[in-house]
């Protein structure tokens, strides 16, 4: 789990991780928001259902795949937060939206 340091880096952008609202510094990524929110897992793998959290934070490992603003399997560590962004953990393989 990670903690903020508000003095040098004020948390100004409000995002939602799961249902919880959270403020994070500008320039943070969705993956950082997940770590700050203290989520136990950002996804469960489609292979064995094992829980995962971000590992590399730089776009290499793809362990941070999450649903962001309704779009599944986005690399959360490569997505910069925007006000109101919704980040949801994923369980197993994604679904595709047929009605879309």
């Amino acid at each position: 789990m990670f903690a903020q340091r508000p003095d040098p880096r004020p948390a100004t952008v409000e995002v939602f991780v799961g249902d919880a609202a959270l403020r994070v510094p500008e320039g943070s990524t969705a993956a950082a928001a997940v770590m700050l929110a203290g989520l136990p897992a950002i996804r469960e793998t489609p292979v064995n259902g094992s829980p995962r959290l971000p590992y590399c934070m730089m776009g290499i490992c793809f362990d941070c795949l999450a649903e962001i603003d309704g779009v599944a399997n986005r690399q959360a560590c490569m997505v910069t937060v925007r006000p109101g962004m919704r980040i949801a953990p994923q369980h197993g393989a994604r679904a595709a939206r047929m009605s879309a």
Binding site: F2, Q4, V24, P25, A32, L36, C77
Partner: peptide
Amino acid sequence: ILLKQAGAV
């Protein structure tokens, strides 16, 4: 990276 991007520890 968490430190650089979010000031997080």
